[in-house]
Amino acid sequence: MNTAYNFAFFDEGSKREIRRATLKAIAIPGYQVPFASREMPIGRGWGTGGLQLTLSLIGRNDVLKVIDQGSDESVNAVNIKKLVCDTTGVETTEHTEEATLIQSRHRIPEVPLRKGQILVLQVPLPEPLRYYEPSESQTKKLHAEKEYSGAWLMLFEQIMKYGSMTTGADHPVLVNGRYVMAPSPIPRYDNPKMQQNDALILLGAGREKKVYAVPPYTKVVSLDFDDYHFQPESFEGKHCRLCGSTGVFLDELVDEAANKTVYQCNDTSYCLEKLNEVEKVGVN
């Protein structure tokens, strides 16, 4: 542990200030609370918002899991974990269930979150309306007035042009019937997991200096139309080549030897747990 710095890197005053913004965010689900985002020892845009939330919340008894695009071993996840461990000395895990605090980029784990856990999502662009309104003072007004026709029009235009909604990741959601929110670039597949989740979901955008939250058991609905329903990515008829799972988000890979497309669980720790379960059963 690096003792040249305070516990969890920040001075206590900074941590308290971030927690205050977080409390406000929890009190107003989906509302983007501005906060005095600090410069971090990792790049702005590399998860500094999530990292600041994690550092402001972490205590000595926490167990930390960090994933990046579904993987515990992705270089950026490793790097963030290393920084938090260096300045706190907390225990880390790859098992979703064991973690008290999970920082993630672009995925909600496959293993359902439980009561008491906190999921911190890293957010590059927190403003769901930015796509059609570049000005911050304008989007702030639109949120205040609950004027979201632009967001619906955006989806409508996609249907007119392409025959379906073409949002990739970051499909906008309506939180608690009030605020339209960017769920961070999680795949559409993960959007429904936010609905009535048992855990607290916090979203941090460091560069854009915003914190927002989905408290446990909050209504979160992906924007769609009565006749054009929200559609998650489809992996119909596909399964993980390692653990055989279906009904999970899969990575598409090319098997060079056989020159064909194969699929594999994107959530690596989930896949590993499945594999180990199978092995245990086999031993019995």
Binding site: R44, W46, S164, I186, Y189, F249, D251, N266
Partner: peptide
């Protein structure tokens, strides 16, 4: 510089997601 350089990070999931939309159209 932070946001420009973040483009070097893996975007496998987001890209997969976009791929799905492109294939659908």
């Amino acid at each position: 510089t932070g946001f420009i350089s973040h483009l070097k990070m893996p975007h496998y999931v987001t890209f997969q997601s976009k791929l799905d939309s492109v294939r659908k159209t």
